[in-house]
Amino acid sequence: RALGYVREFTRHSSDVLGNLNELRLRGILTDVTLLVGGQPLRAHKAVLIACSGFFYSIFRGRAGVGVDVLSLPGGPEAGGFAPLLDFMYTSRLRLSPATAPAVLAAATYLQMDHVVQACHRFIQASYE
């Protein structure tokens, strides 16, 4: 006989992520601006640090609290950052043969190893 019950809301993580994405789109509680080729992308440090080894190393220390603008490399990687930010907030990674190399380069820079592997698989499959 059960003494207690745990009620597990199976869609809770996606509900939280969806709300965080809406907060991002509305600029609510966003605390960092990523400058990519001069273009600003607003985001929440907590989401960035949870998803990327690069951001973890930037924000984990006390010095990270004061970082409110961060420049990311322009050039061929630049077009890959926005799809990665969308991925962090939605769990959906949009890839096409045209964009995959830039997403791969950006994911490598941000130390998002699983996304890197997914990009490699996508590029490999599109060759075959």
Partner: peptide
């Protein structure tokens, strides 16, 4: 059994939905 905790799955929405920006 004493101390047994049952897990019940809830498939519905877990929190409020922040309204989408117009």
């Amino acid at each position: 059994h004493e101390g047994l905790v049952a897990t019940v799955k809830e498939a519905g929405r877990s929190i409020h939905e922040i309204p989408r920006e117009e």
